[in-house]
Structures are given as structure tokens and as C-alpha cells.
């Protein structure tokens, strides 16, 4: 099967999937749970893709990507709840804020030459700082968090039926894939790969390394922030640890690494694996730590044995075939 045909088949399957479970006319069995699991996988894939744009394609390994997610979630929610701004506009504002924050963090860190593990730690520090700030300043309502009033109309970016959030997540995931695909086909994406592989060589060939990295982090930040608004509108509640919790940073990174960092479909594959694993461990046991331990083991296994993730494994198998 060609890559194009496989992509079309995948898209068709994703479009049809919720119809198996939706409403009285469900083709298979009525199950909002099944639709939500699908939605979670697509959403995790999108957030993983946001990490992948920076960490996978450009080698900007971040440990604190939740920084952008939380900023987006708070941005649209505060605009909506505090200032009556329609969440659709809030979504645009949140995405813009994510881009601006990405550019700002990029400026601060890349201009002074921080990279590698220093960059990873800086992003982690930023995310933690934002979490602490969200806990203490007034306009986020601190640790109480913010409830979004129920208003289940599409115009208010809320939906009664979970199937619409599913399709919204699918749209996000598809746009993430499109962005990743574009990175494999454009000058910008090639420059990011060059920077990831060898910064000195990139500079020698005329690449403004700092500028391209800043642009990359802005793009990645915009995506994660868009994910933040989606989350807030789906669950109608955010607080500092939901918005800026380190576990979500880890999940974004894991999803991309397990699937294959720097590949177009890696985050989607990784999200499928992580969500399936999460649901399975939850079914097996209520122990809260179990999932995290499994994630940890999985990550060690991936880093140790599958540097190119599951996608890399498939590719290697194809080459051997």
C-alpha cells in the first residue's frame, strides 16, 4: 500500500469509527466511552505532534511543553469566563498567545545559546513557574481553578454529544499531521532538520539558526495552546495542576518518542499505544502509579532499543522484507 493510500484509509477509518458507537443508530453498540477513548487518542496525537514539531523535527527537546498547553487553556478560559469573549475567538487568541510565548521563550534561551538538556530544563522551569503563578495570582482564581459555565451550543464551543469533540480532535490531529508533512517538504522543515543534526554546519550554509528555532518553538507553542483551549472546552474546568502539570509534558514527549520522534505519523502511532496502554492498566488495576511506572519502562525500552520509535520499527521491517 502506498503512503497516500494508507493515509486515506486511516482517515476514512477515523471518520467512521464514532459512527460505530454513536447514539441510537449506532452501527455496533452505543458507547460514549468508546468515542471518548478515540477522542483522547486523537487529542494525545495532536499534543504529541506539537512536541514533535520542536523536539522531533528540530531537536528542541522540551520537558515543559505543558507550558503552552496551560497558557492556551487559561487564555481562552479567562477571556470567556472573565470577559465574556466567545470561546471560538478565545481559541484564536489562545493559539496566538501560544505562538507569542513560544517565540519569547525561544528568544530568551536560543539567543544566549542554551540547547540540549539546558533547553529541556529551562522549559521545565518555565512550566513549573507558570504552575506556581497560576496558583497564586488573582485572575486565574488560584488553586480553586475556573469552571466554565455549561452552555452546550456549537456557538459556545461546547457540544452535548461527544461525537463532535471527537471530530474536533480529529480535525486538530489532521492539521497536526499536515503541519508535520509540510515540514518534510519545505525549506523551513529542512532547515530544522539541519539544525537538529549540526548547528555549525547549518550556520555555515546560511541558516539563521536562532531565528529558525524561534519560529519553530512559536509554531509548536501555538499548537499546544490550541490543544489547551480544546481541553478546557471539553472538560469545562481547569486548575493549575491540570493546566501546567508536568505529567502532561511527559505524555506529549512520550507519545512522540514511542511513535517515532521526527516522523509525521510517530505521534499518532505513539498516542494509540499510550492511550491503549492507559485504558488497559486502568481496567486491570486502580493503582494510580501503575500507569506511570509502565510509561517509564516503556520509555526506557524505546530509548534503549527503538531510537526511531514504532514507526522506525515498521520501516526497518519493510526494508528487510
Amino acid at each position: 500500500m502506498s503512503a497516500r493510500a494508507a493515509t486515506a484509509a486511516l482517515l476514512a477509518a477515523a471518520l467512521v469509527y464514532p459512527l460505530l458507537f454513536f447514539g441510537d443508530g449506532a452501527w455496533l453498540v452505543r458507547s460514549n466511552y468508546a468515542i471518548d477513548v478515540g477522542m483522547l487518542a486523537l487529542f494525545a496525537a495532536f499534543l504529541g505532534q506539537s512536541w514533535n514539531v520542536a523536539g522531533g523535527f528540530a531537536g528542541l527537546t522540551s520537558f515543559g511543553h505543558v507550558l503552552f498547553f496551560g497558557t492556551g487553556a487559561y487564555c481562552s478560559t479567562i477571556l470567556h469566563v472573565g470577559h465574556g469573549v466567545n470561546p471560538w475567538f478565545g481559541w484564536v487568541a489562545a493559539t496566538t498567545a501560544g505562538a507569542a510565548l513560544g517565540a519569547a521563550v525561544g528568544h530568551l534561551t536560543f539567543r544566549v545559546g542554551l540547547r540540549g538538556s539546558y533547553f529541556a530544563l529551562i522549559t521545565l522551569a518555565f512550566a513549573e513557574t507558570f504552575r506556581v503563578l497560576a496558583n497564586s495570582v488573582g485572575f486565574t482564581r488560584g488553586g480553586l481553578g475556573i469552571l466554565i459555565p455549561l452552555d452546550q451550543r456549537a456557538a459556545a464551543l461546547q457540544f452535548h454529544d461527544p461525537i463532535w469533540f471527537y471530530y474536533l480532535a480529529l480535525a486538530l490531529c489532521a492539521s497536526g499531521l499536515a503541519i508535520a508533512w509540510w515540514l518534510t517538504r519545505s525549506r523551513f522543515g529542512t532547515y530544522l532538520a539541519a539544525i537538529r543534526e549540526n548547528e555549525d554546519a547549518a550556520r555555515a550554509l546560511g541558516i539563521d539558526v536562532v531565528r529558525q528555532k524561534v519560529r519553530c518553538l512559536a509554531l509548536s507553542g501555538a499548537m499546544a495552546a490550541a490543544g489547551g483551549t480544546f481541553y478546557a472546552q471539553k472538560y469545562l474546568y481547569i486548575d493549575p495542576s491540570i493546566a501546567f502539570g508536568v505529567d502532561r509534558s511527559v505524555e506529549m514527549l512520550l507519545v512522540a518518542m514511542i511513535g517515532g520522534a521526527g516522523t509525521v505519523f510517530g505521534p499518532l502511532v505513539g498516542a494509540g499505544a499510550v492511550v491503549a496502554l492507559g485504558e488497559a492498566t486502568r481496567a486491570l488495576s486502580d493503582a494510580r502509579g501503575l500507569g506511570l511506572i509502565l510509561y517509564g519502562l516503556l520509555l526506557v525500552a524505546i530509548v534503549g532499543f527503538l531510537p526511531n520509535g514504532l514507526v522506525g520499527l515498521v520501516r526497518a521491517a519493510r526494508r528487510d522484507a
Binding site: R187, T190, Y191, A193, A194, E197, N198, D200, A201, A202, A204, L205, G206, I207
Partner: peptide
């Protein structure tokens, strides 16, 4: 004005063609 490196600095995991494409994109 473009330099090369005494200790070669390839974009190791990119293909030979992609390496040269980086230059051509200038």
C-alpha cells in the same frame, strides 16, 4: 562567502541529497 570544515560536519542522519539541498535552499 562560505566555509567548509576541516573536521567534516555532515548532517549525519540526512541523506547525501538532503545535505546538499540545505545548501541549495539558500
Amino acid at each position: 562567502m562560505v566555509r567548509t570544515f576541516q573536521i567534516t560536519q555532515p548532517f549525519a542522519r540526512l541523506s547525501v541529497l538532503e545535505n546538499v539541498v540545505v545548501g541549495a535552499y539558500l
